[in-house]
């Protein structure tokens, strides 16, 4: 094998390798990973987070704006303390509302952010979202429903 032919083949090999990487990065995937440089961290407390997991999406009006970074139990209040990173392109009023939703009937859970009205004060690095709503836990929903039915039955003899 002549040197020049060999070099040509190796060049071709590396070139189609780069082509494949470009194809995989531009056509096949998207960069949803968030650069830590361009985010700010906020926290929120929930009575019950249901099945929320680390790295779960944070959405506002259905658009991905951040991800859950950490979930802990506050040892004093026995509430779940959730930390999330929000893309710094998106700024939210300080009185925004965070709730845990389920995508689909039995799908994964995510945090939905609803913007508040207090536009002068914004959420910033380290601030806490005060208004939250816990996850809807299917079992408690069902048992509540049955309980109500039973009460109705007692109320109308």
């Amino acid at each position: 094998m002549k040197r020049s032919v060999l070099d040509l083949w190796v060049g071709f090999f590396v070139a189609i390798g780069i082509g494949a990487l470009l194809f995989l990065s531009l056509k096949v995937s998207s960069f949803s990973g968030i650069d830590p440089q361009e985010t700010y961290t906020v926290s929120a407390r929930f009575d019950n987070i249901g099945g929320l997991k680390v790295k779960a999406p944070v959405r506002s009006a259905g658009v991905l704006v951040g991800r859950v970074m950490d979930i802990r139990l506050d040892a004093e209040t026995y509430e779940a303390l959730v930390e999330m990173r929000i893309n710094s392109h998106y700024l939210f009023p300080a009185d925004s509302f965070a709730a845990i939703y389920t995508s689909g009937l039995l799908g994964d859970q995510y945090i939905g952010l609803q913007a508040g009205v207090e536009t002068e004060k914004l959420l910033a690095e380290g601030s806490e979202i005060k208004r939250t709503q816990s996850a809807v836990v299917l079992e408690s929903l069902v048992s509540q429903f049955l309980f109500n039915k039973a009460e109705e039955g007692q109320g109308t003899p």
């Binding site: 990487l21 995989l24 990065s25 096949v28 995937s29 998207s30 960069f31 990973g33």
Partner: peptide, 19 residues
């Protein structure tokens, strides 16, 4: 086909981890 792929394939987690 392509848009559902792009929406759920993450470059860092899927492509880069594979590499």
């Amino acid at each position: 086909f392509w848009s559902s792929m792009r929406a759920s394939v993450d470059f860092r987690h899927d492509v880069w981890n594979g590499v």
